[in-house]
């Protein structure tokens, strides 16, 4: 699904990611943890194709194809999805319109008319979202939790084969966390998942296959769910020597 080999990434010629390796297969849930500034969001953004990041060396393959062949929208159409740490505000564009157009551009056989509305209603009730969301403007005046829910709603509707979730659990209360996890668990069996998080509490709801510790732009340790507990208890200092 996703293969990252010896990846180096710079922003404004400052190296951020320094020799990162990662392979995600269908049905696998990977968790990345690391300090603020370690380069976690950079990894997610670079995989999705953000123009601000420059790959200076290394390779990324998605579904067997070199990623640089694909423009951002083509990555989305090929099944890649990024739940943003900070989703952008699009003033004046209603959530309903946006979702409909997005589904129509991403999915091969998009549901139309009534079929779309049915799917939308189901997804929204799963996420315990009120209908009034649809007439609000995309992320405009949304609380942190509302933004994250909208990201997960999009994920459910776009049915990605690779989901990158960047701190989707940050700032959520217990109920919201449970709801968001439900969304992740629904997509996960058919997709590869990369979850960036600071908190092991998410892992009460979502069971990862691998947990990676990221320090200064590289993965320095990989383990199972127990590593997440250990990282939350001990912090990252004990791993600095490995970096």
């Amino acid at each position: 699904m996703l293969r990252v080999e010896n990846l180096h990434v710079s922003v404004d010629s400052t190296p951020i990611i320094k020799g990162l390796n990662l392979t995600i297969r269908r049905g696998e849930i990977h968790v990345i943890m690391g300090r603020n500034g370690a380069g976690k969001s950079t990894l997610a953004n670079v995989v999705m194709g953000h123009p601000a990041y420059e790959i200076t060396s290394g390779e990324i393959h998605f579904q067997g194809r070199p990623l640089e062949e694909l423009a951002v929208f083509e990555r989305a159409r090929a099944g890649m999805f990024l739940s943003f740490q900070y989703p952008a505000v699009i003033p004046g564009v209603q959530v309903g319109t946006f979702l409909k157009k997005s589904v129509a551009s991403v999915r091969d056989d998009p549901p139309k008319g009534r079929a779309f509305r049915k799917e939308l209603n189901e997804a929204m009730s799963k996420l315990e979202m009120d209908k009034s969301f649809l007439s609000r403007y995309v992320n405009d005046g949304f609380s942190g939790g509302e933004k994250k829910r909208l990201e997960i709603l999009q994920m459910l509707l776009l049915k990605p084969s690779l989901a990158l979730l960047d701190e989707t659990d940050s700032g959520l209360d217990i109920d919201a966390l449970r709801i968001v996890s439900k969304g992740i668990n629904e997509v996960a069996p058919e997709a590869g998942c990369l979850i960036i998080t600071h908190y092991q509490r998410l892992l009460d709801h979502v069971k990862p296959h691998y947990v990676h510790a990221m320090i200064d732009g590289a993965i320095v340790k990989t383990g199972g769910p127990e590593l997440a507990l250990e990282l939350e208890e001990r912090g990252y200092d004990w791993l600095d020597a490995a970096a």
Binding site: V72, F73, R75, F81, F84, P87, I90, V93
Partner: peptide, 30 residues
């Protein structure tokens, strides 16, 4: 138009032109 807005929309399957179109329509929405 910010590059973050464009990137967000493109990550949702919109071409750059379509993303621009959506942002512009949103701007005129009032």
């Amino acid at each position: 138009v910010s590059s973050d807005q464009l990137f967000y929309l493109m990550s949702r399957g919109f071409t750059e032109e379509a993303a621009m179109g959506l942002i512009v329509n949103g701007f005129f929405e009032p």
